[in-house]
Design a protein around this nucleic acid. Structure first.
Lengths: 217, 217
DNA sequence: CCACTGACTTTAACGCGTTCTAAAATTTGA
DNA sequence: TCAAATTTTAGAACGCGTTAAAGTCAGTGG
């Protein structure tokens, strides 16, 4: 029974690799199950046996990437200010998108289309929320967040704002620079209401220097 | 040439009505071009002749609804506070969703799926942005918005936050009550950073009385 | 070593949105 | 009223994701 399982795992990994390559080359719609089966030297029903559907293949690949990303996440430097820590995390996300834009575009498309991918999206969201929430909780403990504000709620609003902009990028309405500008402006606006002390000074300073013009119209 | 155009318009209107009914009954995926053609006593290619595709039919119906909505929009009462005016507009939107949930769910699905529907979405967005922007501009003129804040940018952030929550509702993750609670909380958070004076007092008062628990997890 | 079990493959098919063909119907202009 | 032009029709077809059936071959257990 061991060899069989190993072969199955090998085939899964191989198919995933080929699928990731095809998606990177041709996008979500450019990846067809028939093409993928042919490119991976496998029959179409095998794809369904091993994964369950087109979206499940992308989910598996995303799951794998999230695992490696989560493993590599360095704890944010405690010496930096809360605002700087947020900027660092934000820029890490930007570099991720920059590295494989077509893949994450395809993920966005999948999240919008397939209900099966919802749990995967939730997990990715929770990962991002956790980073922001932890930073906000620390800031609140340091008295730099309004007492009535919930770190979890604020983090979710910030992520929702990011996600909305991310969708604009995935749909081709915004380039990566505009995504960065709009999303950071939006997140700063959310933070502006709850930040206090030095944290608030940083946020308002960032907001006042930001370009007022908005690419969304 | 007149009769032909008239008949074409009649057929278009008839098909649109039938399509709206079918979508309301069976949702976006439940509406198939073959079913629609049969129900409207028309051939499938005719649908493509008259509209251009499945999404275009929904777009036409949405366009019609937006026109009637825009015509009925009563100017927000000038006597009310800026915050109350915002609440009024927000609740009007909620009632819209409540009246034909399946239709707007289908619109969301279409916006997420079809690039052809992008201009339609943009137009709907601009309509909503305009309401918030105008209110914010008036508030700023009255000195109740921070000087560095751009009414347009803040309005777009608020709408992005609403849209993200709206998608959650459309995908079945949230019910209408949760949509209202989360979206209003999010928009208040955005406003909290830029509101000043009595406007700020209203926003913070609303935020402090809001349920801290968040349905998104 | 061999029969067996299970997975993979082949082949075909389904329903979907969409598009093509040619024939039929209807409106237009004279 | 009649011929020309345009629209609508029926029907088949395409590629897509997905699935069912039966054939085929490997790995497993005795």
């Amino acid at each position: 029974m061991a060899l069989q399982a190993e072969h199955k795992a090998d085939r899964r990994a191989h198919i995933q690799r080929v699928a990731a390559r095809l998606v990177a080359e041709r996008g979500y719609d450019g990846l067809t199950m028939r093409d993928l089966a042919h490119a991976a030297r496998v029959s179409v029903p095998t794809l369904y046996n091993l994964f369950g559907g087109k979206d499940a293949i992308l989910c598996a690949e995303l799951e794998a990437r999230i695992a490696t990303i989560a493993a590599r996440v360095a704890p944010l430097p405690a010496t930096a200010s809360f605002f700087e820590r947020g900027v660092t995390a934000f820029e890490a996300g930007q570099r991720l998108l920059e590295a494989s834009p077509e893949f994450f575009r395809a993920c966005a498309r999948m999240f919008m289309t397939s209900p099966d991918a919802q749990p995967m999206r939730r997990r990715a969201d929770e990962l991002a929320v956790a980073v922001v929430r932890d930073n906000l909780a620390a800031a609140k403990a340091a008295g730099q967040v309004a007492s009535w504000a919930s770190p979890d709620t604020v983090a979710r609003h910030a992520l929702a704002l990011y996600n909305a902009t991310f969708l604009g990028w995935a749909m081709g309405e915004l380039d990566l620079g505009e995504l960065g500008a709009i999303a950071s402006s939006g997140m700063c606006h959310v933070l502006a209401g709850v930040a206090r002390g030095a944290f608030a000074d940083d946020v308002v300073a960032a907001l006042t220097t930001m370009e007022v013009t908005d690419a969304r119209r």
